[in-house]
Amino acid sequence: MNSKDRFAWRWRLNETLLVFLALGLAGCAAVEPWQKAKLAQAGMALDFDTLGSRLHQQVYLSKEAARGGDAAGGGGCGCN
């Protein structure tokens, strides 16, 4: 295989991948607000215990004294 053939082959591969990507994306459909019955089920939640995980995060961050990014710095007292 000379370099010209190899180039043509690479180009064909890339184009094929692009076609499959575009086909896959075209398969995505918008879910309308009134079609979210299944998405609204409790089992579909990313977090099954919102209050519990917030509490856990509060304790964890204060013990690590590493609150950051989302709020003001903390001192490990668990008070903020």
């Binding site: 184009e15 575009a22 075209a26």
Partner: peptide, 13 residues
Amino acid sequence: LLGASLLALALGP
């Protein structure tokens, strides 16, 4: 195929 799927993408939502 590429053209058709891009068109579908543009018109889809």
